[in-house]
Each structure stands twice: as C-alpha cells, then as structure tokens.
Nucleic acid binder design. Structure first.
Length: 888
RNA sequence: GGGCGUUUGGCGCAGCGGGAGCGCAACUGCCUUACAAGCAGUAGGUCGCAGGUUCAAAUCCUGCAACGCCCACCA
C-alpha cells in the first residue's frame, strides 16, 4: 500500500490493532540508547483495577511525553507495573470466597494467599491490556509487581534498615480500626462523612455533692463508650466548673470512681461543659489520658463487640450497646435530655464501615529525620511541581506530618519481618527468615501483620530498577524524569517516595511532579461507580478510537484542577462525547489530508523542499514556529496549549490554505508540480512527527505510507527540532499570505452577504502600494482560483467600480464589481457600521495617546504600536468615508 | 476553622497588565474532483459582584457571593 491507495475511511479498530502489533514486534517500547535520560515510572494501578478516566489522562500525558523524548533521541524507558493493593485486593478476594461459602479464617492464611495470587493472575493483566490499547509505549516486556520476589526483598531491606536505624518502632496507639476488615486504616485512608446524630446528655452522680449539686451532666455522641470512661474533663478557662475540679464522680452501670480534671482540649461552650474521657476509644481522650495518667480501658474486641466483664452488655455490637445504654440511663432517670447534633464520622474507604478508634499495638515509622530532607528538596526546586501551586500542598502536609502507622492486620501484603522468641524475649527484624532463636534456640514466631501498601509503593522509582542488588541498572536512570499523578496521592505516595528515596538512594526520586486535573462528570460531580456516571475509557476508544480520546484528553490539560468531561451516560452506558467526537473529526481530517497528498503523487520523485511560491515560504515558516511551540510546550507539560497549536496549524493553516493553494501548482508544469509535491510531502511528514506523541496510531498509519522513511517506525523517527527548522522562519512570506487570505476572504464575505453564487465569477480590483501589490500579484492566479474571479487587477491606481463593494484592509482596499447584482442600500449600511466601529476604536486610542500619564510611563514600544495603529485607523476611516460619499 | 481552585458568548474551555479568543451548538449559503466526519460566511460577551492599585485591569490587590476540592476538628 502507499499514499495513493489509502482507503477512504479510517477504520480505527482495525488500524490500531495492526499498528499496536507493529510497535510491539518492533521492540521499540524497551529502553533506547540515547543522550540524556527520560525514565518514567507509571503510577502502578491496582492489580484489581480497570482503567478509568484518571488513568486514561495520566497515561496519555506520560505517553505523549515519553514518545516525544524517544523521538528526540533521549534515552527513554517507561516502566510498567501494578500494585498488590493490600486492602483492596483482600476485600475483593474475601467477598469472592464468601460467595462460595468460604470464610478466610477457616481456610487459614496460606490458602487465602493462594486465592489472592489466583485473583492477581486472573485480573492483573486486564489493565495492562487496556494500557496497550491506549497506545502507551511502556516497556511491556519487563512488567513489575509490588509483590515480585526482587521487589519483596527491597521492601524487606527497607524495613530492616529503618528498624535497625531506629526509624521503625512499635507502640500502643489509637488507630482507626475497621471492625469489618479487622485492620487499622491510616488517617489518610479514612473518609469523613457527615451524619445526623444526637448529643446525649447523661447524668453522672458525684461522690460528694459540689455546691449542692448531686450530679454532673456529660454530653456525648457515643454513649456506648461510657463503659470505658476513666475520667471527666472540664475546660481550664471555665470559671463555673472550677469548683468541680478534683471532685470524684461515680460512673454508672459499672460503678467506678473517676476523677474530674481540667484540660485544654475541652471547649467550655460546647455541650454541657463536662466531657467524659474514654482514653481507649478516642484520640483526644487518649491524649488527655496520657497527660492525666488515666487507665486505658478497652471495651471492644477487634469486631467492635463489647468484651467480657460488662454483664448484659457483653457481646453487643456498638449499635446494640448504644441503645441498651440509653435505655439503662432512661430507666434510672439519668438521661438528662437529647439534642440533635450533626457530626462527621470516619468510614473505611474500602468497605465503608464506620471506623472505631481503637487502642492497639502497631508499627510506626518515625518521620522526624525524614521530613527535613524531603522538605528541602522541594523548597530548593530540585523536585518541582507542575502546576506550581501543588508545592504548597506538599510542604504543608510535610510540616504537619505525624509518625506513620505502617502495620495492617491483613494477610495480603508484605509480612512484617520481625521475629520474636517467646522463650527468652529476643526480637529482631531479619532480611532472611529464621526458625530458631539465635540466643536460646527456641522456635521463633513472625509478626502476623503486613505492611501498609504505601510502604512498598514508596520504593517504586528505585525498587523497579534493580535496587538494592543491582545498582548498575539504576545508573544514569535515577532520579526519574517525571512523575505524573493525581493530586489526592501527593501526600500518600509522592511525599513518601521523596522521603524513602532520599534515605536509601541519596537521590530525589524524580525531577518533576505533574499533577493533572481531576476528571469530573458532565454535571461537575465526581465520577463514581455508585452514581453510575463514570466513563469507561474503553468505551471511548471503541466509539471514537484511541487517538481521538487521547487528543481530547490533552486539550483538557491546563492550569485547572478539575475538568468536566462532556460524556453523556445513559443507564451506565456511554451515549456519546461531543468533544471526543470533535477530536475524531480531527483524526479524520488528518487522514483525508494525507489522502489528498497521495492522490496527487503522479510523477513524484524524492527531493528536498523548495520555495517557489510565497505559500511555500509561508507554510514552512509556520511549521518552524509550530515545532518551536510544540517542543517547548511538551517540555513544560503544557499539553493543552500543544494540542491547540497542533490543531490550529494542521487544520486552519495546512488544510484550509496551504493544500488549497497547492492545487494550482499541482496542475502546473512538471517542474512546478514536482516541487509542490515535495513540499506537501515534507510538510505532511514533519506535521505527522509533531502530531505523533499525541495521536500515535493515525500518524503512524499514514507515515508508513509516505514515499520514503528514515526509520522503521514513526515512533523512532527524528523529531523536527526547532533549531533545525528555524532557518525557514520568514516574516515577509507570512505577511504576503496574510494579504492573500484577506483578499480571498473579502470576496467570499461579499458573496455570502449578497447571496451570490460561488459559481458567479466576479471582477475584482485591489488598490495596493508597491510592496503589497507585488506580493499579491505573485499570488494572482491563486486568488482568482480560490475566489472564482473573472479578473483581478492590482495596483496603486485601482478605483472602485461605480457599483462595487469595498473592503478596507491594512495596506489595501478590495473592490468587487457588483454592477447589476446588488442592492446598494445594504452595502452602505454595512460600511456605516464598519466606520462606526473603526471610529470607536480610534477614539479610544486617541484618548489614550493624549493622556500625558500614558506617554510618560508606558513602554516605548507600546506607544509606538498604538500610534501606528491610530494612524492606520485614521487612514481607514478616511477611506471608508470617501467610499461612502461615492455610494449614493 | 485553615488552605486551594473556579466564575469569560447557549455549552465546554483558553487568555492572566496594553486591540475580548477557540471548539461545539445556532443561523445563512454551498454535495467546489482530500474530507458533508466537509467548505465558506454570519451572529452572539460591559470577562461573578463591589472597591482599590496603575497612564492602562478579563488580567494585579482587597472584600463579598456562588460552586467545587483538600486538610484539621467536631465530647
């Protein structure tokens, strides 16, 4: 096949499939040797995942960046991998087993892990296949997984090093406990939900009356936790409560004497001013308990069921217990009153259960030594965020960072490599498993918990590149170039990568962090499965093709932090996306432009572009400027600008004007024709290269049909470098074509206004001075062709026909002879309107130019420009007025 | 409570100190031998509101409003 027998329709499904195979077979997705380095790691999607719009945008940005760098001859590799996603996967496997009537506790840890691996192998490949279909040029041959043996070793070394360096410790803490997943959930993973609740006012009897009062009233949203109360607090700034400090109350139900004390946590104005303190079930109460030496009484087990020792309440769930407690207080006339009270409750981001603050043994990373360096590299700009405003998000988070709870009570994940000897109390973190105690020889027991998923993914930039056993592999490829990710994991992931990378590799993990906008549904709400308003990128690809989806996504990359995606969804299925459809129109336009070139290749022989018309000089000049703006735009991650520039050039300049202008040359003598062919092929070729990172499939499909190629694939062909093309820049030529465009547009506008058929030939005269006249005369035949003119005369002495329309442009006046075809009242009205607009602008400028402040303070070039513009306007108004005077 | 973002023609967005733009939709005329998934043309906005800085403000500052996001807290 070649350009001249391209099929009329561009069939995305068929072509994309073929081209994808070509790229995979070609082996060009692997690292290429080059100058400089552009290593990029893909944010590892969950192994259970399906591609969503966030991934589609993320991966499109990365691929555009990576393909651009590869074409420039930069050493490039895009590393692929998936994340084992502890809680997410375990939850899904759990659910699946439950459907089969299997309880994970019944089959035990090993069998359950087998089920997890089965799941991983079954679903892990889906998202990888989807990434392929998007055209992403990742290194599929070397896929990573956060549970690979090598990766697991790296995780284990990190744990052991930090353990031995004193950065990892074990402690009792209040953690957010999910009673359903039976695991701790980090603060960052918990989600607040506002709920309508109540504030119960409970009476606690005083041991001895204070100021004649027999009891105090505490206010609580969680009466069930009163079983674990070990104190009552008042505000230190509350004079009314001062007398109660040091008094003792008898806690009802399980009689127990507990003290009243003052603590700054208490807000005197809220509730009753008395706060019941439950150190084992509330973070603030825990802190108060620490300060006032209160006992920590844990009343719930791991499923949030009341433990032994509480009589009838034992065995109750939180909800049951709450009702029972309230009933008890009511019965004993100790329920003072109940207020409505909205508050937010933490929920598990996986299973949505309400979380229980729970006191337990957990592992922590001490962040004091890590946060300083991680702050410095961002402040200094070594690591920079795009857009810049995310720098502050990162720094603020880093500043407020608390120790990181890394243990999770799950089975699926990296098991904590700490071993205990129950016989002699020996304990250590080991890089290799051990069975017996090195001290006393008794059997060892390994910690049951696994690590937070982010603990392993924080190593992503270097554990995927041979660290720690094969440091040569990283050489020259770490730090990575860019990390493209969503803003909601700046803290969870980006910050932790910086901390761990600095600690273990002494390098930053990446130079640039690119934060893309969150894609919202059409109505501005978040896309979510439960709402059924999510768009599946695969549906978009099936409907419009991968290139169209990619191009549309790139146009959305601006400074914005949210973008609305215009897709219509009906009953969960994609109906259409106007913008993606428009992008497909652009793909088709590119295809058809190539077909046009192909249809005019008779007699073509290869050769360099040559300038034989101002149009040639013009398009080459525009091309040179395009390469400049696209190159700089991609380097600066301004993909929206890049997409707009490409569209503007290809459609409005190359197709609308250059191809049209070239038609005459193609019908000319053999020499002229050949030069035109060579120029068309050259510009098309260069444009395809510039378009390729954004729209890889269609550009490759066309490029491989070009008469000659300098590479086996467009994806490894040379990038049109701005410096190479710069000599083509030609301001004179651009001006000349601007004049041509103005003339043709003037005639078309006249036709449209008076309803004249394009088939009706018109006689046109253009009054222009020497330089302009010469420039336009050289395009005379083309103008006649494009505007369908019977005659075109150009010169300084041309005059408007008695019955003719006038267009006043900078540097020329265009007259169409309309003798006998037009109502001149309309032409007069139009000119009057135009004159009024010109006068308005002239007056505004005149006012500005007579302002002494402006003349004194404005930049000279601005004054010069405005003065010139003013003179031009005066001239135009004079000419329009003169024409009006003659139109009687 | 703290922070961030958005507010520009019917819709989606760009511009972010010196002449209000783009795409889609609308309207008019064209099946002009690459493309009707097309071509040509027309219309439509006092750039959220109120102040301020400046010779000059959609663009910078302050305040306000609406919408959205993040963080913290809520006995």
């Amino acid at each position: 096949m070649s350009l001249n027998d391209m099929p009329k329709n561009y069939e995305t499904a068929e072509v994309e499939k073929r081209i994808l195979q070509k790229w995979l077979d070609g082996g060009w997705y692997a690292r290429n040797d080059g100058t400089g380095d552009c290593t990029v790691v893909i944010p590892p999607p969950n192994v259970t995942g399906m591609l969503h719009m966030g991934h589609a945008l993320d991966d499109t940005i990365q691929d555009t960046f990576v393909r651009f760098n590869r074409m420039r001859g930069v050493s490039t590799r895009w590393i692929l991998g998936t994340d084992h996603a502890g809680i997410a996967t375990q939850t899904k496997v759990d659910k699946r087993l439950k459907e089969q009537g299997i309880d994970r506790r019944a089959i035990g840890r090993e069998k359950f892990l087998e089920a997890c691996w089965d799941w991983t192998h079954e679903f892990g490949g889906i998202i990888v296949e989807q990434i392929k279909r998007m055209g992403c040029s990742v290194d599929f041959a070397d896929e990573k997984f956060t549970m690979d043996p090598d990766y697991a070793n790296a995780v284990r070394k990190v744990f052991c090093d930090w353990y031995h360096d004193g950065l990892i410790y074990r402690g009792k803490r209040i953690v957010n406990w999910c009673p359903s997943c039976t695991t701790a959930i980090s603060d960052d993973e918990a989600e607040y939900q506002d709920e309508g609740g109540h504030l119960w006012h409970l009476r606690y009897p005083l041991k001895e009356a204070v100021s004649g009062q027999e009891y105090i009233t505490v206010a609580t949203t969680r009466p069930e936790t009163m079983l674990g109360d070990t104190g009552v607090a008042v505000s230190p700034d509350d004079p009314e409560k001062a007398a109660f400090r040091g008094a003792t109350v008898i806690r009802p139900i399980v009689d127990r004497e507990i003290p009243i004390f003052a603590d700054w946590h208490v807000d005197a104005g809220f509730g009753s001013g008395f706060v019941k303190v439950t150190p084992a079930h509330d973070p603030n109460d825990y802190a108060m308990g620490q300060d006032h030496d209160l006992p920590q009484v844990n009343i719930f087990d791991e499923h949030a069921v009341v433990v032994e020792g509480y009589g009838p309440f034992t065995g109750m769930t939180r909800e049951e217990c709450r009702e029972a407690i309230i009933a008890w207080f009511e019965k004993h006339d100790l329920l003072d009153h109940v207020d409505d009270h909205d508050h937010s409750v933490m929920h598990c981001y996986r299973c949505d259960s309400s979380l229980e603050p729970w006191l337990s043994e957990q592992w922590f990373v001490a962040v004091d030594k890590l946060k300083g360096p991680a702050t410095d590299v961002v402040k200094s700009g070594e690591v920079s965020f795009h857009p810049d405003r995310w720098t502050q998000t990162y720094l603020t988070w880093m500043e407020n960072l608390k120790d990181w709870c890394i243990s999770r009570q799950l089975w699926w994940g990296h098991r904590i490599p700490v071993f205990y000897c129950d016989a002699c109390g020996w304990e250590d973190a080991l890089e290799e498993d051990a069975d017996v105690c090195p001290k006393c020889g008794a059997p060892l027991r390994q910690d049951e918990d696994v690590l937070d998923t982010w603990f392993s993914s924080q190593l992503w930039t270097f554990a995927t590149q041979g660290w720690p056993n094969n440091l040569d592999e990283m050489q020259g490829h770490h730090p990575t170039k860019a990390l493209v990710t969503a803003r909601d994991i700046i803290a969870l992931w980006v910050a932790r990568m910086v901390m761990s990378s600095l600690y273990f590799t002494k390098q930053i993990p990446f130079e640039d962090v690119v934060i893309y906008a969150t894609i919202l549904a059409k109505d501005g709400s978040r896309m979510s499965k439960s709402k059924g308003n999510g768009v599946d990128p695969m549906d978009l690809i099936n409907m419009y093709g991968a290139d169209a989806m990619r191009f549309n996504l790139l146009t959305l990359v601006t400074n914005n932090q949210d973008v609305r995606f215009d897709a219509d969804i009906k009953d969960g299925a994609l109906v259409g996306s106007p913008r993606t459809e428009a992008a497909r129109g652009f793909v088709t336009k590119i295809w058809n432009a190539a077909r046009f070139v192909g249809m005019n290749m008779d007699g073509y022989t290869p050769g360099e572009p040559t300038i034989q018309t101002p149009a040639d000089a013009w398009i080459l000049s525009r091309l040179a400027k395009l390469s400049e703006s696209v190159t700089r735009g991609i380097e600066e991650y301004r993909f929206g600008d890049v997409a707009r520039d490409l569209h503007q050039f290809f459609w409005s300049e190359f197709c609308d004007w250059y191809i049209e202008l070239s038609k005459a040359s193609l019908k000319d003598s053999d020499d002229v024709r050949l030069a035109a062919q060579r120029n068309l092929v050259f510009v098309l070729d260069q444009a395809l290269r510039l378009l390729h990172p954004a729209m890889p499939f269609v550009t490759e499909a066309i490029w491989e049909q070009l008469p000659q190629q300098d590479a086996d694939s467009l994806m490894i062909a040379a990038w049109p470098e701005p410096a190479t093309l710069a000599p083509w820049i030609n301001e004179e030529a651009e001006k000349s074509i601007d004049l041509t465009v103005a003339t043709v547009s003037a005639v078309r506008s006249t036709r449209a206004r008076y309803g004249l058929s394009p088939k009706l030939e018109l006689a046109v005269a253009v009054k222009a001075q020497d330089a302009e006249a010469a420039a336009l005369t050289s395009q005379s035949d083309l103008v006649k062709q494009l505007a369908n003119l019977s005659s075109l005369s150009i010169g300084p002495d041309e005059e408007r026909p008695a019955e003719g329309s006038v267009h006043i442009e900078e540097g020329c006046e265009i007259y169409c002879d309309l003798t006998g075809v037009v109502d001149f009242a309309a032409e007069r009205a139009r000119l009057e309107k135009e004159c009024a607009e010109l006068e308005k602008e002239r007056d505004r400028l005149a006012k500005k130019l007579s302002n002494s402040g402006f003349l004194e303070k404005a930049a000279p070039e601005i004054i010069e420009k405005d003065t010139a513009r003013h003179a031009e306007l005066c001239d135009q108004i004079e000419r329009v007025t003169a024409q009006l005077a003659e139109l009687v």
